[in-house]
Lab assay of single mutants.
Amino acid sequence: GRPPQPKSVEDLLDRINLKEHMPTFLFNGYEDLDTFKLLEEEDLDELNIRDPEHRAVLLTAVELLQEYDSN
């Protein structure tokens, strides 16, 4: 089946190999997954995450988090 739900933002970023963005998220108040899963493209602009590939991966991760919630 699906991988288990990540336990933290750090756990999530670790899985998608984008842990380099951890300080950015923490500094901007994305300390838990409840906050993280509200992330949208405009937020990525504000966080200055410009890499299109990173953005795509992050937004996909957000969608997956929302799916875990609805099940």
Rank of each mutant, 00 (worst) to 15 (best):
E41C: 07
D11I: 00
T60N: 15
S8D: 09
D43T: 11
P4H: 13
L39N: 02
L12G: 01
L18D: 00
L26D: 05
Q5F: 14
T24L: 09
L58K: 06
E67Y: 08
E41A: 12
Q66G: 10
R50E: 11
L26P: 02
Q5Y: 15
L58Y: 01
L59V: 04
E20A: 04
R50V: 14
H54E: 14
A56Q: 14
L58E: 07
D32G: 06
D45Q: 06
P23T: 12
L58A: 06
V57P: 07
A61G: 06
D51E: 09
I16V: 10
L39R: 02
I49M: 02
R15I: 10
E46T: 15
D34T: 08
N28Y: 10
P6K: 05
P52R: 07
E53L: 07
P6G: 05
H21T: 05
E20M: 10
E53Q: 12
E67S: 13
L38H: 13
D43A: 09
M22T: 13
R55D: 03
E53R: 10
L59R: 09
E53V: 10
G29T: 01
A61P: 04
A56E: 14
L59Q: 07
E63L: 06
E63R: 14
L33S: 02
L59A: 06
M22V: 13
M22P: 00
L18S: 03
E67K: 12
T35L: 07
N48P: 02
P4L: 12
M22S: 08
N28A: 13
R50W: 13
M22N: 07
E40Y: 02
E31I: 09
D69K: 09
F27W: 08
T35P: 01
P52Y: 00
P52A: 09
N48I: 00
P23M: 10
Q66H: 12
L44M: 04
F36R: 03
Y68G: 14
I49R: 02
E53H: 12
D32P: 00
A56I: 06
L18C: 06
V9I: 10
Q5N: 11
E10Q: 08
E40T: 15
D69F: 02
D51P: 01
P52S: 09
V9D: 04
E41V: 07
E63Y: 04
N71M: 12
I16H: 10
H21D: 01
L59H: 06
D14F: 04
D69S: 09
L39T: 03
L38Q: 14
E40A: 14
L44H: 00
T35A: 14
F25D: 05
D32H: 11
P6Q: 04
P6D: 11
N71L: 13
D34K: 09
A56M: 10
L44Y: 03
Y68L: 12
A61Y: 05
K19V: 09
L65M: 08
R15N: 12
N48L: 04
K19Q: 13
G1I: 13
N71G: 13
G1W: 11
F36L: 09
Q5C: 13
V9K: 04
K7G: 09
D14C: 10
Y30W: 12
K19I: 12
Q66M: 08
F25M: 05
L47F: 02
I49T: 02
E42R: 14
N71A: 14
L18H: 04
D43F: 00
D43I: 06
